[in-house]
Design a binder for these strands. Structure first.
Lengths: 167, 167
DNA sequence: AATATACGTCAGCATTGTTGACATATATCG
DNA sequence: CGATATATGTCAACAATGCTGACGTATATT
């Protein structure tokens, strides 16, 4: 009838400690991950939301507004504000969908591409270093856990196995 | 003199693809990670910033304001706003530091503890599921990579190896 | 022809970050 | 002891980015 004790001999406590470490690692990693882009954006008069839009438009050229909304999980009004600025300032170009002419397909301009590379430079370097130091096996474990954290299968599907063609 | 081609035979492209998948996994994981707490907070009239304060005060009882600022990496004015609300609403209690009486040591009240558990319930369940599905080896890799992503050694030091006492 | 969908827009509000300035209590140093 | 540094708090203004609600237009589908 005694409550679970918080000692290292208690497996329930160990488990909670492990889970909380995960929570915190995610917090710290994300905090550090956005620090450098945020500083760059600040100097350019933009914010984190602009970065996300630039990133995913660069990643999925000719994507639709709906698809972008589904990725970002924000309202169209929130997206509209930053997207409008990026279009007006010449970072993103909109073209009517060839099949469905209601769509506005999004793509980066040269200027947008330059900005995208500048913004993700630190983030890519950060992953390059972490991956290199941890080793391929650890990277595989990292991916497994990260995918397990996601809510939707459709998001997991975005990460098809990397193939180096050596078959 | 040809530029690097974006084909699956090109190792540079493969590498960039791998790094970008890392970037995106972090984005999606974080997005999903905060969705449920955000919804709860919204109903309680709080925001994400309140969650972070409640979480870390719960994690490090009797921590100082400075230590909390160092974790959150925000200004004291930003912290002050949410911390003040949490103290006024009875979630957090402040006591003068016994050694250094300039300090205001922070700890959760019963009410604060309840809220903390409610807020992290989904996050802990999320990690429990991801860890279980991925396996212990993957978890180890996950931790290695996550720690590699951090900027500061002092943050890495927060994650001492888990010890199950079986030595 | 009616209805649904894709997208845009205006307006207002809340949260959360910032900078800058200033105040108080307490600790430390010379 | 007196000067200085540190820990914390506070007021004010501003910017970015979420949200809800309402309404409008163009195009596709039924």
């Amino acid at each position: 009838m005694t409550p679970p004790a918080k000692t290292s001999a208690n497996p329930l406590f160990l488990r909670d400690e492990e889970l909380r470490q995960g929570i915190e690692m995610l917090f710290y990693a994300y905090r550090d991950f956005i620090a450098e882009p945020d500083a760059i954006l600040r100097r350019s008069g933009f914010g984190r939301a602009h970065h996300r839009v630039i990133y995913f438009v660069g990643r999925y050229p000719d994507t639709t507004v709906s698809a972008l909304l589904d990725i970002l999980q924000i309202t169209k009004q929130s997206l509209s504000r930053v997207l409008g600025q990026l279009v007006r300032d010449g970072y993103i170009q909109q073209v009517k969908g060839p099949q469905d002419r209601r769509q506005r397909l999004l793509r980066l301009t040269e200027k947008g591409r330059d900005m995208e590379l500048k913004l993700t430079e630190d983030q890519r370097a950060r992953f390059a270093r972490a991956y290199r130091d941890a080793g391929v096996e650890a990277v595989d474990g990292f991916r497994k856990v990260m995918l397990g954290l996601l809510t939707r299968d459709e998001d997991r599907d975005r990460f098809k196995r990397l193939d180096n063609g050596s078959r």
